[in-house]
Design a protein around this nucleic acid. Sequence first.
DNA 1: TCGAAGATTGTCT
DNA 2: GACAATCTTCGAG
Length: 207
Amino acid sequence: MGRILPRDFYNRETEIVARELLGSVLECRTGNGIASGMIVETEAYIGEHDAACHAAAGRTNRTAPLYGPPGISYVYFIYGVHWCVNAVTREEGLPSAVLIRALQPLSGIRRMKDRRGEPTRDTNLTNGPGKLCEALGITGAMNGLALQRKPLVIREGPRITSDEIITTPRIGITRAVDWPLRYIIRDNEYVSRFSRARSQRAGIRPA
DNA sequence: TCGAAGATTGTCT
DNA sequence: GACAATCTTCGAG
């Protein structure tokens, strides 16, 4: 198993952290055991000047973790249906984070299937921010926690070279839609599917 | 206290 | 491709 990524890893420019999180391993330990997956898709949300970032509206109870120290989680509930998990970046007071959008399942796949209700294909287990939280059992109870200890840990994974990384505009947002802050591993079949249609509409060649 | 919006997903046409 | 499901958060009244 790789080493746990230290707090300093996150105390850098959000775009760099988002790229380097590709290939690392998100691990979640619940009462049911451990489930983990390799991160294959991320998005950067880079501060109050980023209209798509939750912190664009300023500091509120909800966005408080974004302003916290680097290397903690930011978990929020969206559309009354899904949880999404972020890793907070940069020093305290600078609200920015990396949204984890897709994983390639590594361990605890049986548990993931149980939580997700047996999807037809393994690629459908964690290929989206809401899906991966459901598969790993991540909820709001894990908001604002340090990512260096259980239940939520991110470990170093295989090194991903820059020519294996594709950059595209972010997905599913209504503001700052053109900012190229989404990072995916080229040719990985576990990236979220939404991307293809959206990318084509935006005139960007899909991976 | 109310209303609107939202970093999504699954289902139906 | 379109749309409903479902609920938390926040600002306005």
